[in-house]
Simulated assay, not measured.
Amino acid sequence: MVRSIIAPGKYVQGRGELGNIKEHAKSLGKSFFIIASPNGIKRTKPVVEKSFQGENVKLAFESFNGECSKGEIERLRQGVKENNSDVIIGIGGGKIFDTAKAVAYYENIPVVIVPTIASTDAPCSALSVIYTDEGVFSEYLLLPKNPDLVLVDTGIVSKAPARLLVAGIGDALATYFEARACLRANALNMAGGNITKAAYALAELCYNTLLEDGLKAKLAVEKGVCTVAVENIIEANTYLSGIGFESGGLAAAHAIHNGFTVLSQCHHLYHGEKVAFGTIVQLVLENSSMEEIEEVIGLCLDLDLPVTLEDMGIKEVKEEEIREVAKASCAEGETIHNMPFKVTEDDVYAAIMAADALGRLYK
């Protein structure tokens, strides 16, 4: 048995840390190619330029076209070549991260990830999700290493809408339970090895942090302030969950999320919102204790995360539609097969319906 854990080369988090990007990134190169949305460039360019002021470096800012596609990656690679850039910086959200990581991989140069939201655990991972130019999923690009630096300015992240932070909590909520399932099944993690005690401890710490600080952080961000609880939740959503999912492994919760993507009624939800309900379904599949299920549902209710099919946007429950979700959740190669027991489409259908009933009971 081979155990493995992977992580970014360096993780830095703090209020105002974007203003110190020079100190954290200067050892990586001398010519920086910075990818962000047009609005992201407008908001962050003065801060980045001020940080590098007086240094013998070149900064090239390039607007992201909105889709992590092969065409966009190739366009940006051309910009890197024209500017003789030797470091990529991606500032923004998930698709910008994935694009920056892909460009850096193909150009074989370091990459810095600067999240401006904490809605997923993607910033730390060695993975890019590639879409077509029209936004249709194309493929996963598995990368040989994680980002060289992940820099999180919590002053910026805490100003984003509270729903985004809460969606990140929903995504992080699955981390411990999926790692636990993979450990019980002796399943491989995303790094191709078995889970280490370190990765499992981080996954467990992630869950405990969500329970302790999730509601406090949501309330603080709704007021536009950054408290210790917000700092803790940003770390949980970004780093603890990032290491936890990649080096712990995925199981039923994320597979069930993928299953719900077949229903148009759920398309308005963020990734983490669907994952939160998928976590409850996984607990039902495992026949977890009522104490554990109540704890998870209680946190979701505190944070306004979905606990019923109606919360997921499904106003009229049709058996054939839920069975389509169950079928997609159990597709060949899905992570639901990392559960420590065989899971069938009938099992998933039953667990979804039971999770909905539990959610309605506690609402």
Rank of each mutant, 00 (worst) to 15 (best):
L250A: 06
E62I: 05
R360M: 09
G249N: 04
K95Y: 09
V317I: 15
V262T: 15
G16S: 07
T238H: 12
A198F: 15
E324M: 14
I234A: 11
S329K: 05
E273L: 01
A355H: 02
K315L: 00
E139N: 11
A326N: 10
A355T: 01
R43V: 07
K363Y: 04
P8Y: 11
G19L: 09
S51G: 13
P38V: 01
A102P: 09
L183A: 11
E345D: 08
L250R: 05
P161Y: 06
E320K: 14
F245V: 08
S119A: 15
S329W: 05
K95E: 08
A100G: 09
E292N: 05
L76N: 03
L211A: 07
R43Y: 07
E291H: 07
E74A: 14
H24W: 10
Y200M: 15
S241E: 09
C226E: 06
R43E: 08
Y140I: 07
R75F: 05
L183P: 00
L358D: 01
H337P: 12
I5N: 13
F260A: 03
P147M: 06
K95C: 09
N39P: 00
M353H: 06
P144L: 11
C226I: 01
S138N: 14
I109W: 01
I113T: 08
V12P: 08
E212P: 08
P46C: 12
F260Y: 10
N20F: 08
P144T: 14
Y362F: 15
N186P: 00
A118Y: 14
I91P: 13
P38K: 04
A220M: 05
T308Y: 03
M353C: 07
K327E: 15
N189Y: 02
R163I: 10
N65L: 08
P110T: 02
D302T: 07
I113Q: 08
E82P: 01
D302F: 05
H257D: 01
G272T: 03
L205H: 11
Q265K: 06
N65R: 09
M290W: 02
V152I: 15
N83L: 00
V57Q: 12
I91A: 09
R15M: 07
Y140D: 09
R360C: 02
T44A: 11
D347M: 14
K26W: 04
Y362W: 12
G93Y: 13
K274A: 01
E334Q: 14
E82M: 03
Q78V: 04
L127A: 05
A252R: 02
E107M: 06
L250F: 04
R15P: 00
G170E: 06
R184L: 15
D133C: 04
K81V: 03
K315T: 00
V47C: 08
A7M: 15
D133K: 05
C206L: 11
F64N: 07
T308F: 00
I113D: 10
D121K: 10
G93W: 13
V114G: 09
V228R: 05
L210D: 15
E235V: 00
L28R: 02
K342Q: 12
T344W: 06
R15Y: 06
V57H: 11
P38S: 03
L219E: 15
L28I: 03
Y270Q: 10
V80F: 00
R180T: 04
S329P: 07
L18F: 11
N83Y: 00
F260G: 04
Y11M: 10
T196H: 13
S27N: 04
